[in-house]
Nucleic acid binder design. Structure first.
Length: 265
DNA sequence: CTAAAATCCTGGTGGC
DNA sequence: TGCCACCAGGATTTTA
């Protein structure tokens, strides 16, 4: 479940070992993940130098010297490792990029949901994404405009990457709790005051999670410890830390959803 | 148009 | 201990 904070953590960790490196080879064991013709990837990636690594929503963009962009999505169970080529690959490494200094960028992906693209224009992959919630451009006015005339439920809208890029199941539940808004509330019936609370909660929760290097779960990126600070996600049946009522777990749009019936109206 | 359901996947879990 | 059905979940695709 890597979401924005986990992907941001990965991006920051990869910059030092990867920027300036040149790809020397491509290794693939699960071609369903590769969304560019494999021949093209294997033929044209070697010789490319990585000049920058950026995050867009939950996507990682590796900018190459030619101007093309290698885009990865970790989906459910993806992780990226930089290891010596001599070090044996974990069996769940589905794609690897060997580099000019004897290391490899390894895409470990237990559940095989991950995706790899090589494109000339990243908009081909990420063009429809909504705004970056931590950018300066994402003001309250922008958020309010996006919410206007939306009839759907808050939870579903927040999970929609074309609405805001980067929120996922864990942090949506945490944002709704912090703002004190019920996740099933219709968006067009939320007051301006509560919208402001939601806007602030999005920025606060994501920033806090990044500060703690994201959350670590069964298959998710190692290292982070924000999972210990979650107030509702994964806590169905436990007592709310604010009002002591039992936290509920329900299914919304095939996603588990956690909220406190006392604090969230 | 929206919304719900199916799809892709595997390791872990709980029941028996 | 072994077997098996079942579950999680991001994004896309299909169905209603």
């Amino acid at each position: 479940m890597p979401e924005l904070p986990e992907v941001e953590t990965v991006v920051r960790a990869l910059r030092k070992p990867l920027i300036g490196r040149t790809v020397t080879g491509v290794y693939v064991t699960w071609s369903n993940s590769i969304k560019t013709p494999i021949k093209e990837l294997k033929n044209s990636l070697p010789g490319e130098r990585i000049v920058a690594i950026e995050r867009r929503g939950k996507y990682l963009n590796f900018k190459l010297a030619s101007g093309r962009v290698l885009i990865l999505h970790l989906k459910m169970s993806g992780d990226l490792l930089v290891e010596s080529s001599k070090h044996q690959r974990h069996p769940h490494v589905r794609t690897a990029f060997s580099l000019d200094n004897g290391t490899e960028l390894r895409f470990k992906d237990t559940r095989k949901f991950g995706r790899v693209y090589l494109v000339s224009d990243p908009a081909q992959v990420t063009g429809k994404l909504g705004p970056e919630p931590l950018s300066e451009q994402f003001t309250f006015e922008v958020f309010q405009g996006l919410c206007a005339r939306r009839k759907g439920r808050l939870k579903s809208l927040f999970l929609n990457q074309e609405f805001i890029a980067g929120l996922g199941n864990i942090y949506v539940d945490e944002v709704c709790f912090r703002a004190g808004v019920h996740p099933l509330k219709r968006v067009d019936r939320i007051s301006r005051a509560k919208l402001l609370e939601l806007y602030r909660a999005i920025r606060f929760i994501l920033n806090q999670a990044i500060k703690h290097h994201g959350s670590t779960f069964d298959y998710v990126y190692r290292g982070g410890n924000y999972q210990n600070r979650l107030k509702v996600y994964g806590r169905g049946g436990q007592s709310c830390s604010r009002c002591a009522k039992k936290i509920r777990r329900v299914i919304v749009g095939a996603r588990s959803t956690h909220y406190c019936p006392g604090c969230q109206k």
